[in-house]
């Protein structure tokens, strides 16, 4: 069992969760993720590690409340326990001295991008960060970024802060920068990853994306996380989650992520009355 150290809503519908997991905290690197279950009957879902404290043995994730597991997670009180936290999974971000890097984070990606920004900075890169949201009240961790990075820019759908629009405005940002960017890295929803990659393709800037297909085990056992990259099938949990955004088959990824759309709403609409009857079938 893993103890919840802290849990709260950070901006509407976005939650921050700190879990006691000393072995993971000791190993985890920027770009890696965990898989957790919120309850014994629960699904295994992947979440990026957005921060950690090696000394205290804790890891932090930021997640959007969109379905049955995340909604259950969002209701956990500090001091409660969840049955599964496994990791760190996936490969660490490729962190080198690239020169100038542009890091783009949308929704939960604002959180999961943070350790990457930190590691890029530690390697001596000039680090520019663009964060993107529907409106300015959905931004978080701005203070943390401000003290860490060389430049922090904003895009909002409603224009309440920074540029108005969405990630499609990246080319304008790049042009306005009047400095060369050697690498772009994007964290966030599939739409954000795809549009961002489309935007940098013509500019010929290497663009790395953190893919988020459906996963179960996270160890290369089930194959549900397969994505096509450069015409080859890859298992994102062990061969990713970072891939070259210009090589990803986005249409396939978007389709595969929708596989369980119809079913995912069922637990949200189900009363718990029958549960006891079923649980007695599970002798453990």
């Amino acid at each position: 069992m893993y103890k919840i150290i802290a849990s709260r809503m950070i901006v509407p519908n976005m939650h921050i969760l700190t879990i006691e997991a000393p072995v993971i905290a000791r190993q985890v690197q920027a770009g890696q993720f965990i898989i957790l279950r919120a309850e014994e009957e629960g699904e295994r879902i992947p979440l990026s590690v957005s921060d950690w404290d090696r000394a205290r043995g804790t890891i932090t994730t930021i997640f959007m409340n969109i379905g049955s597991t995340t909604s259950r997670l969002s209701q956990l009180a500090s001091g409660s326990f969840i049955p599964t936290v496994v990791g760190p999974l996936g490969n660490a971000s490729e962190i080198e001295h690239f020169g100038t890097v542009l890091l783009i984070g949308g929704c939960y990606g604002i959180g999961s991008l943070y350790p990457v920004a930190r590691a890029m900075k530690e390697k001596g890169n000039r680090v520019l960060v663009v964060i993107e949201a529907r409106s300015s009240y959905l931004f978080f961790w701005e203070d943390r970024y401000r003290v860490l990075v060389d430049k922090l820019l904003h895009i909002t759908r409603d224009g309440s802060k920074g540029l108005k629009g969405h990630i499609g405005r990246i080319p304008e940002i790049l042009t306005a920068l009047d400095e060369p960017v050697h690498r772009v890295l994007i964290n966030g929803c599939t739409f954000c990853l795809k549009r961002g990659s489309d935007a940098t393709r013509e500019l010929g800037i290497k663009t790395v994306v953190d893919l988020n297909p459906i996963m179960i085990d996270g160890t290369g056992m089930c194959g549900v996380c397969r994505v096509s990259v450069g015409g080859m099938t890859k298992f994102a949990c062990v061969q990713g989650p970072e891939f070259d955004g210009h090589e990803v088959d986005w249409a396939e990824l978007a389709q595969r992520r929708k596989s369980y759309m119809a079913e995912e709403v069922i637990p949200l609409r189900t009363s718990k009355c029958e549960e006891h009857a079923h649980q007695s079938e599970e002798v453990s």
Binding site: R44, I216, M221, G223, S259, Y260, I266, E282
Partner: peptide, 26 residues
């Protein structure tokens, strides 16, 4: 599906008892 995915959803995650268990199987 791979057989592993199909069977894992069913057995380990108890997909045949969905939605009591939350992992879906079509």
């Amino acid at each position: 599906y791979s057989a592993n995915e199909y069977l894992t959803r069913l057995n380990l995650m108890k997909g045949y008892l969905f939605p009591t268990y939350h992992t879906p199987i079509k």
